[in-house]
Design a protein around this nucleic acid. Sequence first.
RNA 1: GCGGGUGUGGCGAAAUGGUAACCGCAGGAGACUCAAAAUCUCCCGAGCUCCGGCUCUUGUCGGUUCGAAUCCGACCACCCGCACCA
Length: 880
Amino acid sequence: MSTTVSTSALPAAAEAPRYDFRSAEPRWQAEWERRGCFHVADVPADGRPKYYVLEMFPYPSGKIHMGHVRNYTLGDVVARYKRARGFSVLHPMGWDAFGLPAENAARERRSHPAKWTWDNIAAMRGELKRMGLSLDWAREFATCDPAYYGHQQKLFLDMLAAGLVERRESWVNWDPVDGTVLANEQVIDGRGWRSGALVEKKQLSQWFLKITQFAPDLLAALDGLDRWPERVRVMQANWIGRSEGARLRFDLATPTDGIDAIEVYTTRPDTLFGMSFLAIAPEHPLAAGVAARDAGAAAFIAACRSMGTSEAVLETQEKRGWDTGLRVRHPFLPDATYPVWIANFVLMEYGTGAIFGCPGHDQRDLDFSRKYGLSVVPVVLPPGEDEAGFSIADKAYDGPGVMINSGFLDGLAAPEAAKAAAIAGLARLGVGEGVVNWRLRDWGVSRQRYWGCPIPVIHCESCGVVPVPAADLPVVLPDDVTFDRPGNPLDHHPTWKHVACPACGQPARRETDTFDTFVDSSWYFARYCSPHAAEPVTLAAAAHWMPVDQYIGGIEHAILHLLYSRFFTRALKATGHLALDEPFAGLFTQGMVTHESYRGEDGSWLYPEEVEVRADGTAVHRQTGAAVTVGRVEAMSKSRRNTVDPGAIIDRFGADTARWFILSDNPPDRDMEWTESGAAGAYRFTQRLFRLAEAVTALPGAGEVPDTFCPEARGLRRATHRAIAAVTEALESFAFNVAVARIYELANAIGDAERAPDTADLRWARQEAVEMAARLVAPMLPHLAEEILARLRPGGALATDLPWPEANAALAAADTVKIAVQVMGKLRGTVEVTPGAAEATVLAAAEAEPNVARALEGRRVVKRIYVANRIVNFVLAGPA
RNA sequence: GCGGGUGUGGCGAAAUGGUAACCGCAGGAGACUCAAAAUCUCCCGAGCUCCGGCUCUUGUCGGUUCGAAUCCGACCACCCGCACCA
């Protein structure tokens, strides 16, 4: 016989639970709203210290998912806890509302992106409100509202005036069928993800925000972000990618097409004497000239261009090249010349788009040289090798050593000393210099889309690019657009783009590109400080609330969103809109929510609610009874159908249960597995806590604090005050699962006290314990906490408004402590003594413990270790 | 390849130099019940046991220490990020 642990084991609606969350949760949500509990002013005058809690705002897809529930639960616990600790807490919510899904929906369902988006927002707002989050809803905004994006246009124009914006040509992935630019991740196997058309590399004029201008500071300031996860800082540092090297010029033996030299960037100028070729990127200007004369070169370049940019292709791609026939002179060896190749592994976007090849000490260069029979000269001798016997086989050596075969560098230590000498040598000759290079590139923000913030400029034939005058902002998206043909609807609109030039009044053309949606999310945290202000950011409000004290979201935003926001904050400072550099003082990255996946006999994915999982781990289809294969536990995804709908969970168990299970399961930075049994267990606890509380509230009041307490009452008070201390510590350190465990212990202690004889002092202690339990769970189970406190103290303060309880250390202290007694590090017994007992007393008791005494018998004790209130260890002489 | 992380009962985990496994989930036994659900009680790392205890156990091997899940070194496995970055 197998029992089920599936949804059928859940309480039927017919049996009324004693704690009726269905009536309590909406009732308390309405009460909080009525009292304005979570509302704060833009610039508060109440003198309380501020705390800004922010969770990454959601994209309005139409439904919240478990990842949202986890994210907003974590943030809400922090917000409610900090509020109880006396902070004035800013905890806002809004919508990251621009983006492609709205346009796709428009194409597929003939629904307008605006309507689709606002409908989704309304639906998701309702779902979020059911979670009982302590949000200041008066601050809500959506980035697709001109009231928001108009300010964004102003910020852009100010950045433009400050020289932080540039218009320039750049290579993009172009989908010729959809008539739009694709992001790298939208190119799959060289084809557009939606049209399936072969993607072309095309040069387009695009707007760039000059994030590279801040690269040094964005890197250096990472050190100060001590409340950020180490791995996020490492990821950002890698992304910014600082490297030290040299830029140097190689003169062409014969100038060609008016070009007489090639500039190269290298991090290893010390290996210059090991050079055997020079390679340029297929997009390098010199390559175009070569291709014009050499059909083979032209064909090679064309092949590289169609190769695609996907990682999989790059990874497996063989190193290939084309000899241009040109030769360059070596800066240090005027008589030596080297061939110039076009190579598929040289990137135009990094460094100068040209490298010198040193096959002895770079694996790529070695692979290339072996393929085309180029020379390999070792110039760094590894420690312990002798010069005569050392040669390079199929493994380049990139470690430290001593310079050989390198003229004036011979004998120097590689890489550092030799690098410095080589750079000095290049500088002396006037052909190169030491430089710092960055991997970070400027941020291209132009998108050929409708559903985004219009870029507020006008193109005039005579005046060039003219900013839209501030008085004409916002530049509002037209409503009457069609999606019946490919390309950007803004560009197709009959009238929208035709305007008079603000400078000369002649007919001109509006910019029809819109911003990358990452722009929208790069300053929303600042707008929350004064969401209704006439200016984008109010300095006084931002000065009060910024930075965000605790930011919470997914690790998937570790680089782009967080880096862009850090850049934007600096850019806003440079344009006078903000007065700080770092937007997020503390960052927490949560793990994903996962679930088992299920497949039917025909291999199709099944939703969890279609499946009945038996206790032995096998599963069947609920309707058909057919066998179901239980698959891996994976991140919830629609395609695998291993999703659980938060709305359904809240219907069945209530918001508190969903919150409690999410918090209790494991540490919040790890992936958690959503299970039906775990959710049911959390539900049982909410009922149990309510029942324990009700048993106490049903008793007559216990009155004044008793003078003395019986041992049971003392024990309960000890459990209560220990729980206060432990839960406080756990919440401070984001160890919510530990906080939950300590609350279970307190509940167990309350349950034990129920079975002890009912004395007045125990009754008092039980009331104290129940009250404290309610206040300790309030950040996690806010509705249940209110319900319990309202019964315990009718007409009293809301749990939401009570200060955080203080533990009484004297009450938490134990009457006796159990001390472990070890002999040679092995546990042989325990002794119970009063806390702080004299060392001699404890040692005597330890030696007298029968099992310890037996272990000590006939042996000489050479050392007695005593750690107060913890442990005794006897060290014996000689062998056993 | 480089960088970061993780590894503890059947499962999620706790303990960050001092009695390994708190708390929960799953499981087992019992109470209540005509019965079930709910609830409550007890058991629950492995092996041995003369029932006093003993031995083993935190990925593996070594080291430091009176004492190591915890600190150090080497290795193994898995996860994540980055990458022809010159």
